[in-house]
Design a protein around this nucleic acid. Sequence first.
DNA 1: TATATGTATGTAATCGGTTACACATTAAAC
DNA 2: GTTTAATGTGTAACCGATTACATACATATA
Lengths: 325, 325
Amino acid sequence: MKTIKDVAKLAGVSVATVSRALNKSGYVSEKSQLKVEAAIKELDFYPNEVARSLFQKKSKLIGLLLPDIANPFFPLVAKGVEDKVNEMGYKLILGNVQENPLKEAEYIRTFAQNNVAGVLSAVESSSNNLKNMPFVMLDRITSDKEYSVHSDDYQGGMLAALAVSERSPGQVVVMVGPRSVSNSLVRLAGSVKVLEENNVAYQLFETESYQFDSAQESAYQLFELFPDVKSIIASNDIHALTIMREAIRRGLTIPTDVQVIGYDDNPYSKLMYPSLSTIAQPAYQIGYKGAEILCNRIEGLKVKEKTIQLPVKLEIRESLRKKEN
Amino acid sequence: MKTIKDVAKLAGVSVATVSRALNKSGYVSEKSQLKVEAAIKELDFYPNEVARSLFQKKSKLIGLLLPDIANPFFPLVAKGVEDKVNEMGYKLILGNVQENPLKEAEYIRTFAQNNVAGVLSAVESSSNNLKNMPFVMLDRITSDKEYSVHSDDYQGGMLAALAVSERSPGQVVVMVGPRSVSNSLVRLAGSVKVLEENNVAYQLFETESYQFDSAQESAYQLFELFPDVKSIIASNDIHALTIMREAIRRGLTIPTDVQVIGYDDNPYSKLMYPSLSTIAQPAYQIGYKGAEILCNRIEGLKVKEKTIQLPVKLEIRESLRKKEN
DNA sequence: TATATGTATGTAATCGGTTACACATTAAAC
DNA sequence: GTTTAATGTGTAACCGATTACATACATATA
């Protein structure tokens, strides 16, 4: 790899001048600038980011913590993050936490050891450990003292419950995501409000994880516990799809016998048959906007709002019954 | 952030001794070792990886190039990569190339600028630009001079064609992935061999991308071009699911009117109704094994085989008709 | 006792950049 | 024509680690 010294020698100037030319900082004569640029081109020189970041105590890397990349919601978030972050000249260190607090802590330490400029996290607990770096929470709300971008979970919970209420609900089961994830509690609150306002009877079914593997078991348990369920408000699309599959396996017809609504609107939901009705979250936007806020903070610009709430949208598809009246 | 100097001062030794104690290299008396360890613990010190990597000209970071994280095959690969790489003390810089050669080149340059220890790439073209770093190709085969881990595409192509051939194929359409991706050509060769051996008539249908968005349009075109198709060998599960959806939209029944087989076995395929028959690729294994080879190369261990081919498996589900006889 | 070897430690150079500072030159102001 | 300010450039310190080298001491060998 070529270094700034090689460039300096070829251009016939000092390393300081090369550095100034490179960063367009300080005074550089036009003549020197051109000589340096020519030398850089000739040598195909690119500055070593490691050396830069050692001196600056700040790299061009941003840490991204995700709970589970296998959940298709998060790759979309990651894509939004990546696009914005690249636009601003940063790259991502990926941390897939897999609901494992040890991995999480390890990643946060590694981020620090690598002088990351900041961290974007979709993992609830991390906010405690991120005290020393600028960070923005994605999707998860923690406290309103921290920067975060998330969608309107309360509204989402209401919309889902409303969609079900309007469609001969029968026995309703509301699936509640892991207690540790506060979104799921907010959604629940929204759903409960609507259900109670409409005098719809409902029961709760808790799931301890958002992960793929556990969904199968959850779906099975749900039908064992509530064999007469007529409407299910699932905690996300993966669960919803798995529930639909389990219903079909049990010889139930969707939506006639059981109607289901999911959450997230992952790309597969509309491909399924019957297609899944769901509350669409702007995953890409969440990532993009979060990255924008983080980059602005890093660059020292002031960011007006700490918490940005993006709207959710009800997607009516085939997994819901026809509306009454 | 605490530095090695702080540790040295607190422990009452020189920075050299701290470094030696830290890395267990050279001579360190037991007494010094203990003093250093105590100081490290007291200060909660972790070495700055940036400084390390500047001196070593090699970081503990590994670049990962993926064509599209939104395709659920790749998050699984990434998970395998991440698990192995973490095990060996490395972290990942993520590069989502999105079939864009410029982004790819930019990522490769960034990897170099950050002194990555090596690169794992699932993007075909990258092998040309990676000359200066150790790298292993994932999923894609390039030349047998390069390290790679991929699954047995020829076998996969054969299995898919065989499954179809045995089930009253009728008019068969074989979908061919982008020409630039050599896997798809190998698969095609496998399929063609079986189809011709069994005297099954077939037609080709080319798709220019593996991306999500284009799948919809492809599915539509396929049925426009071949309205009487009875069997479809799709180039991956996303396409297969989209095709099934389009078939249903057109009032066709699966598998009676049209049978479909996919490729990859992504987690959604078995949730679909009817569930999608497919050729399962060991995505996680590909990532894990690739990472293992790369890490071994980085650590200077010799790696026996350059190319590792993992087996594929036929998953018969509901999207295929009953076998004849 | 003199010499060689192993153990232990510190000083300083090094990695490849950035930047504070000193110094030189030129242009503008008085 | 001197003073002042603006411009341009180089030397060297610095970021936080690692390691070559010098040195010191203890022990073993002759």
